[in-house]
Amino acid sequence: EWPTVKCKQGEHQLQYSYCVWFSRRTPGNKASSANYEQNIKIIGSFASVEQFWTLYSHIARPCDLTSSSDYHLFKHGIKPMWEDEANKKGGKWIVRLRKGLASRLWENLVIAMLGEQFMVGEEICGAVVSVRFAEDIISIWNRTASDNSINIRVRDTLQRVLNLPPNTIMEYKTHTDSLKDRSSF
């Protein structure tokens, strides 16, 4: 069931409505689709700039989450799952971060996504921040893994909005590959 979400009078509408999902995996448990779907919950949705900030101010920052937690910020109607219709031909850019950077960089990424800074039409599906023991990981998902020009534009925008040093390693992984090896990263 998708939550109903509407821009109210006086608010600044976003190009898309979004849902924020939260998941936490018991460390050591191998991910399976069934598990994953049980462990992931919508914690809020928004259609305007004001509704976004209201929600954002009321949820913990990534740095305050325990290990194995994830926030998934996806367009309303797209589940943060490889199998979703919008995702199944897609992939994601992955950036690994040393501990301590995730909250700030996640905010930068979210703001760029909501403000439509990626300039790739309907391609962006959502973004994920994954809090892990030794590092944190930020990723952005797009619809068409096979379109190299789109992928390059997403990568360059990601690099710019996160203000990453030029030598930062960025990996692209298709969801088909994730499904094959049952692993996100």
Binding site: G10, E11, H12, Q13, L14, Q15, V49, E50, W53, T54, S57, N108, I111, A112, L114, G115, E116, Q117, V161
Partner: peptide, 21 residues
């Protein structure tokens, strides 16, 4: 069609708007 684009500074400033509380 037209896209609704917001720059970073605008969105950050909106954080303090009364409707965002």
């Amino acid at each position: 069609g037209t896209r609704i684009i917001y720059d970073r500074n605008f969105l950050l400033n909106m954080r303090n708007s009364p409707l965002s509380q």
